[in-house]
Amino acid sequence: MAEASEPIVRIRNLSKAYRRGAQIIPVLTGINFDIARGEFVALMGPSGSGKSTLLNLIAGIDSADEGSIQVADVEITTLGESDLASWRAGSVGFIFQFYNLIPVLTAFENVELPLLLTHLNRRERREHVEAVLDVVGLADRMDHYPSQLSGGQQQRVAIARAIVTDPEILVADEPTGDLDRVSAEEILQLMDRLVREFGKTVVMVTHDPRAAEKAHIIRHLEKGELSVT
């Protein structure tokens, strides 16, 4: 199935280096990488291998030194600061290791946040938020604050927030890294469901082999270079 469809992410000759004083540390060197629509890709590799950097570049929150990144036919490396922010709002869903919910907002309001950047009115926003909270099974917790929810529940709210704008791709950075085994399993099942039922494309960085098992494709990064498994 993956082979048949047009790639949603197309990365060519991507390089990125960090500067520490006078020292230049290469992180990614000449990466070429395609992700097909509806694929669940796991990026693995040791610390410092550049997997999070690659994820950040695909998500448009970091800038490349060289090369091109096309996501759904948009060349994001040439977008300016403000256009990139607008692009992220509509095209990328973020799932973080520590959920990154806003503590002073309720589950409902957290999920509603990305919709505040759309033209939807109040009633339409409510419908969307209720629908995705229902998908993640937290419709009855929408008035709870993050501190009143368990880690697994918080991550499910974060996933609802990531999918509420119906983005092209979901990027997940160690989504199970802070969870116990049972909650982690629930989150992975939910992500798997998003791919199978809703046709989402997921790019996930993980250390956890159990998490990587859920993915269709596992890519290993080592010293800034990709290898296929």
């Binding site: 922010a85 709002a89 990154n100």
Partner: peptide, 14 residues
């Protein structure tokens, strides 16, 4: 700081 980073990642402008 993290909250600010999250809001920016979600697409909120500077």
């Amino acid at each position: 700081v993290t909250e600010i980073g999250t809001l920016r990642a979600l697409g909120f402008q500077r």
